[in-house]
Amino acid sequence: MALFALQLKFTDPDRRMEVRPAHRDYLTELYAAGKLHTAGPFTDQTGALLIYDVADEAEVRDIIAKDPYTAADVYEIVTLQEWQQLFPPA
C-alpha cells in the first residue's frame, strides 16, 4: 500500500457547502474501508488536505473522481503526491 497526499484549493464556497454532507459521507465510507488515512480542511476554509492509503496512484485518482466534490467542481488540485509517513512510525 502507498500513502498519497492530496491538497485542494476550494473554488466555489457556496456550492461546496451544498455538497459537503455528501462529500463527508463519502470520506466516512473511505475511512471505514481503510482507504482514507486522515483528512480535513484548512482552518481558513480555503482548501483541504487528505491522505489516502491505496495500492497506487491509479486507485487514488479513481477515488478522487468519485468524490461528490469532484462532480460539483468545487476545487482545484494543488498537489497529488505519494507521501512517506515518518511519525508516528507505521
Rank of each mutant, 00 (worst) to 15 (best):
63 I>L: 15
47 G>N: 11
63 I>F: 02
34 G>H: 08
40 G>L: 08
50 L>E: 03
30 L>H: 00
34 G>Y: 01
38 T>L: 12
48 A>K: 10
58 A>D: 11
41 P>M: 12
51 I>L: 13
48 A>I: 12
43 T>S: 14
31 Y>F: 02
39 A>K: 04
52 Y>G: 06
48 A>N: 12
51 I>W: 05
39 A>L: 06
35 K>P: 04
48 A>M: 13
30 L>E: 00
40 G>R: 05
59 E>D: 10
67 D>A: 07
56 D>H: 11
64 I>C: 05
44 D>Y: 02
57 E>A: 12
50 L>H: 13
32 A>N: 11
51 I>P: 01
51 I>Q: 02
49 L>R: 08
35 K>L: 10
45 Q>A: 14
60 V>K: 06
38 T>H: 09
63 I>P: 04
38 T>A: 12
40 G>Y: 10
43 T>A: 12
32 A>R: 07
36 L>D: 03
37 H>E: 12
62 D>F: 01
50 L>P: 03
32 A>V: 00
38 T>F: 11
37 H>D: 11
35 K>G: 06
31 Y>K: 01
46 T>R: 02
33 A>Q: 14
52 Y>M: 09
40 G>F: 07
67 D>H: 09
54 V>A: 11
29 E>P: 00
32 A>E: 07
44 D>R: 01
29 E>D: 12
43 T>F: 06
47 G>I: 09
66 K>I: 07
59 E>K: 15
52 Y>R: 08
41 P>F: 07
31 Y>H: 04
41 P>L: 08
36 L>M: 14
33 A>F: 01
62 D>I: 01
51 I>N: 02
60 V>D: 10
61 R>A: 04
34 G>S: 13
32 A>Y: 00
47 G>Q: 04
54 V>M: 06
32 A>F: 00
67 D>L: 04
61 R>D: 03
55 A>E: 14
40 G>S: 12
58 A>I: 09
29 E>G: 09
59 E>N: 13
62 D>W: 04
66 K>M: 06
57 E>V: 10
58 A>Y: 07
66 K>R: 15
29 E>I: 02
37 H>Y: 13
36 L>S: 09
56 D>M: 03
53 D>E: 15
33 A>S: 11
39 A>F: 12
45 Q>E: 14
37 H>K: 13
42 F>Y: 13
42 F>D: 01
33 A>Y: 00
52 Y>Q: 06
43 T>E: 14
43 T>D: 11
44 D>L: 06
37 H>F: 15
38 T>G: 10
56 D>N: 14
43 T>R: 09
47 G>F: 10
47 G>S: 09
61 R>C: 03
29 E>A: 10
39 A>T: 13
62 D>R: 15
32 A>T: 03
56 D>Q: 04
61 R>P: 07
59 E>Y: 11
33 A>C: 05
35 K>N: 02
37 H>Q: 12
66 K>P: 00
50 L>D: 01
64 I>A: 04
57 E>I: 13
36 L>N: 02
